[in-house]
Design a protein around this nucleic acid. Structure first.
Lengths: 238, 238
DNA sequence: GCCCATAATTAGTCCGTACTTTAAAATTAT
DNA sequence: ATAATTTTAAAGTACGGACTAATTATGGGC
């Protein structure tokens, strides 16, 4: 290995793989560890930074350096400039709500097993269109747990996304997004809205948005017009 | 602002927004710049690291620090552990080649305007299946520029992805992936292979793989069975 | 036993210096 | 001109020291 700190990374990774260090354990304090390794604290910190980046370590003031995974991850960074972009909603689109209602968990397959929240969710139905255009390119259904149901009146005030409204109203931040993309035959009810034949190919995106403490923030199910919308990712590899 | 280096970040960003610094320009050398700002080089380097992370700066030894964007990007990291995962090809799938041939640029719409490479590309046609299963879940066509066409004999030796073969054979690394996902009506020729009715909804993924120097490495067009394949992203937000 | 103030600990920030590596630029040779 | 070589400027690596801030742990009061 060329650099000292990369070498230190490898060593720590090796010890984890060999079982000498285990997930959940804490490493010694920086100063102490650097001394025993015979390197400077700054060099150790560079190694730690790399391992933290790779998802192996987690560092917190006073709490120390914890091993949280034995599998370093090659890092990809998405070339997007906000969560809205990540969710593939351009800046120049607007969301209009057609209806809201309370639904019990059992009625919506996408909610099954996701949360032990109280039985009812706020369902927000709507569609999204390019600014200025008249026809929508997607039909959206967003499910909000009871905890955030109070946003309902606020939603009607603007054309913002549901997640943005929640972020602002409750002063919380998205921490993670799990998203799946499939091709489906467009349901008849949605086909009318986006101008498709029933049964024609359409793109279905289901997303779960979580807060940084892993609590569920919203579940969203959207059906997109296949010619007027596509998911585009641009991913740099470290 | 709390930290000196975050403050420096803000300052630089502010100057970019104000037009005092422009995209394409280079910042002064670290030592010099730190001196004029009246801070230590390490502190400046922390600020630079943050701005590089955000996609605003690009640093290269001896070449200096260049401003490459005026829009800092909120950071997303994908929870994948390799490019294969990123391209949504699980570890436990295998690729089999059905045919290869030389094609001119004009015949393939996905190649239009992508590269000024010489007129011919190596087209590798194949399908991908889960390990052990008999029916494929995707039909793939991969286009390799003439520069890498020599991999053709190597391809038939194993069941590895084309990009992996290129990486190994030429000792190069992927630097960026641009990917788009759409819903399409499955073409008749592909429908047979993955067991779909012609015209049924299918997922189409088109990807361009670039090397770190931005030269094109491969273009791939794949059609997926909608029930047996979906794109899944799990994205942490900083 | 529980709550609150205090102390101790640990990662984070900041400084300054010295040396190394890379690659752009300049120079020389073909 | 073009190719090979040398120079050199810039980021990268590494060291060590000092101070800061956050948070866990401790101890005292009720």
């Amino acid at each position: 290995m060329k650099n000292l700190y990369s070498q230190v990374c490898e060593d720590i990774l090796g010890q984890i793989r060999a079982g000498e260090l285990r997930v959940g354990e804490r490493l010694p304090p920086e100063a102490e560890y650097a001394a025993t390794l015979g390197i400077s604290r700054s060099t150790l910190r560079m190694a730690f930074a790399e391992l933290e980046e790779a998802g192996v370590l987690k560092r917190r003031k006073r709490a120390g350096t914890e091993i949280i995974s034995d599998r370093p991850q090659r890092r990809f960074s998405m070339a997007t400039s906000g969560v809205a972009e990540l969710l593939s909603l351009g800046r120049d689109t607007e969301f209009s709500i057609t209806s809201t209602r309370q639904v019990p968990t059992e009625e919506i397959p996408q909610l099954a097993g996701l949360s032990s929240e109280t039985g009812h969710w706020l369902e927000v139905s709507g569609s999204r269109r390019m600014q200025g255009e008249s026809r929508a390119f997607s039909v959206n259904r967003v499910y909000v747990p009871a905890r955030f149901a109070a946003i309902e009146p606020v939603l009607h005030e603007g054309r913002r996304s549901v997640f943005q409204t929640i972020e602002e109203t409750f002063d919380v931040r998205i921490g993670r997004v799990a998203q799946s993309v499939r091709a489906v035959a467009c349901p008849a009810e949605d086909a009318k809205v986006i101008g498709l034949e029933p049964g024609a190919p359409a793109l279905r995106i289901e997303a779960q948005l979580y807060l940084s403490d892993e609590r569920l923030m919203e579940v969203s199910v959207a059906t997109f017009h296949p010619e007027r919308f596509q998911v585009h990712n641009d991913v740099k590899i470290k």
